[in-house]
């Protein structure tokens, strides 16, 4: 009887299992468990994890926090639109805002220092995609994610939006400079 017909043995669940199947199921199961263990293991020993810190917020509340930081730590302005470049001290709370179609403000951070990066959206969903590092996170309106970041190399990083957010999506870029 082929797989198109009912099983030849009515009591098929009592048939013996092929040895090769048993062997494969066993090693596949071990591998599956190893893959599971890697995730908690990395939380303990790895250096790249998502935080579990997040808050409910509103665009108004979040906008105020961003503005307060900009007023406190702006060191210069860039581009024709005079976008502030913010250079907060190590360990500070750093607020980055996503909106149609901009990342605001520009951040200037120091290599090897740790910061608490806050992320939220003022309108639709956006995707924080840091290039060329290639770190990617979802940014959702109404939620404020807080993530400790420790930049490990100097350079000029671009934030690209990688969650589709309408017709200007592909023009939505921002900057994080690492000194």
């Amino acid at each position: 009887m082929s797989s198109l017909q009912p099983p030849a043995e009515r009591i098929w669940w009592k048939e013996p299992i092929e040895g090769v199947e048993l062997f494969w199921v066993a090693i596949a199961l071990v591998w599956a468990i190893v893959m599971f263990i890697m995730m908690p293991y990395w939380h303990v020993y790895g250096k790249q994890n998502l935080s579990n810190e997040a808050y409910r917020t509103t665009p108004e509340q979040y906008g105020k926090k961003v503005q307060a930081m900009v007023e406190q730590y702006t060191v210069r302005k860039e581009t024709a639109q005079e976008i502030p470049v913010v250079h907060p001290p190590a360990g500070a709370d750093v607020y980055l805002l996503a909106r149609l179609w901009q990342w605001y403000p520009i951040l200037e951070l120091e290599q090897g220092k740790t910061y608490r990066l806050h992320l939220s959206s003022m309108d639709w969903q956006h995707g924080f995609s840091l290039q060329p590092e290639n770190i990617n996170m979802q940014v959702i309106p109404g939620y404020e994610m807080v993530l400790k970041i420790t930049p490990n190399k100097p350079g000029d990083n671009t934030i690209v939006c990688n969650e589709y957010c309408g017709i200007g999506h592909h023009t939505m870029t921002g900057k994080i400079y690492i000194k």
Binding site: M35, M38, M39, W42, G46, Q48, N49, L50, G127, S129, N134, I135, N136, M137, Q138, N162, E163
Partner: peptide, 11 residues
Amino acid sequence: TEQLNLIIHNT
């Protein structure tokens, strides 16, 4: 995989 997703999400 929770952490590996960070270098893949939405690319």
